[in-house]
Design a protein around this nucleic acid. Structure first.
Lengths: 196, 196
DNA sequence: TGATAATTAGATCGATCGCTATAATAATCC
DNA sequence: GGATTATTATAGCGATCGATCTAATTATCA
């Protein structure tokens, strides 16, 4: 046990609670007092443990990234562009409409349009969304170089398309779309691939 | 001229200014004081003319709807499902990446995830997004009944797909995607149609 | 057992939030 | 010109925002 008075909260559990709140209500829509109450700690304890609201949010984002890392890790392991796309879309359906998690995607609804005080957070979310697309494009590029993309397709355009559908499904989930509806959307989206 | 002291602002112009601010910064991210300054009127004048923040936002949404009404009106006039979809997607590209307007879509980023105080506004935006999809589905249903949809396609799933891509493009635009990138996405999205 | 270190608890900071009460101003109506 | 009506301007309302100060508490270390 460390030196001083022991903490009355579990840091990871508290961070997970914060993640759920930011996920559901966004960065601006979640107040410090709401966070502190839900996390079972006083406001000074929250600041002592997590810095400030922005750094708490960014730590929650890091925790959220674990979901994405798993999803895209598994998708990138697939051996065809079509399977990669399918894994991304079906994985996103699970993520944005999971029964145990808030509807939608933290990267999208965490800070999409904000006031001036949250501008840095908004830009960081936009940056991470763009980076995810760049990563997907790089994976598709590998298939492109191996001549395994349909004729005339650009890896970057395919990646932009897949991520656009994924992002759109996240908004649909937040609008109340069911998992079944999202699966139908993903099925439609996969029809871009030419038949044999 | 009406009875009392004349107004020092043009109501429609002021509402348009409010629309731009809500469009860029969202409902929660736009404060009354910011709105009043940009609209060139004092805070009491703003309340006198527009009620409260929520009703001002809803009036801005009505003004925004004019863009959508034009877009979907023209799209629904097309004579094939494919042309309807193409008109929707290209129209949305214009709308969410217009040079004269903020990036993205007010319906999406106006109030996607919010705090408890903005819950009503958030639900209203979600409702309008769902309604737009229902309208598109109804148009596709007409083609379906005429046997003019590809075999095995559901009008509702096609509508959900098209609106998902449209919504996703709105987020992409807010992330900084260029018009050209969005056009490439729309082109990819249209590939779901089978070749003759 | 006393010094040290870390966390907790309670009170509160200045700033801003959405909103409004009051009163001065500027037009028309009679 | 006086009454009426609507808008403007100033000031400020209570509540909440993110964040912090001070002090009491509870552990380890020497």
């Amino acid at each position: 046990m460390p030196r001083g008075r022991p903490r009355q909260f579990d840091e990871e559990e508290a961070l997970n609670t914060a993640l759920r709140l930011f996920w559901r209500h966004g960065y601006e829509g979640t107040s410090i007092s709401t966070l502190a109450k839900a996390m079972g700690m006083t406001i000074p304890s929250l600041y002592n443990a997590f810095g400030n609201k922005e750094s708490l949010f960014m730590k929650a984002v890091c925790l959220y990234d674990l979901y994405g890392d798993k999803l895209y890790g598994e998708a990138f392991a697939k051996t065809s562009a079509r399977e990669v796309a399918l894994a991304i879309l079906m994985g996103e359906v699970d993520l944005v409409s999971g029964a145990e998690t808030p509807e939608g995607c933290l990267m999208v609804q965490g800070a999409l349009a904000t006031g001036p005080d949250s501008e840095l957070v908004r830009q960081e979310m936009a940056k991470q969304r763009r980076q995810a697309e760049v990563d997907v494009a790089a994976r598709f590029e590998e298939f492109q170089k191996a001549g395994q993309l349909p004729l005339g397709w650009k890896a970057s355009a395919l990646a932009a398309y897949v991520m656009t559908v994924a992002t759109g499904m996240a908004v649909q989930a937040k609008s109340g779309a069911s998992r079944q509806e999202l699966i139908e959307v993903a099925d439609m989206a996969m029809k871009i691939w030419p038949k044999e």
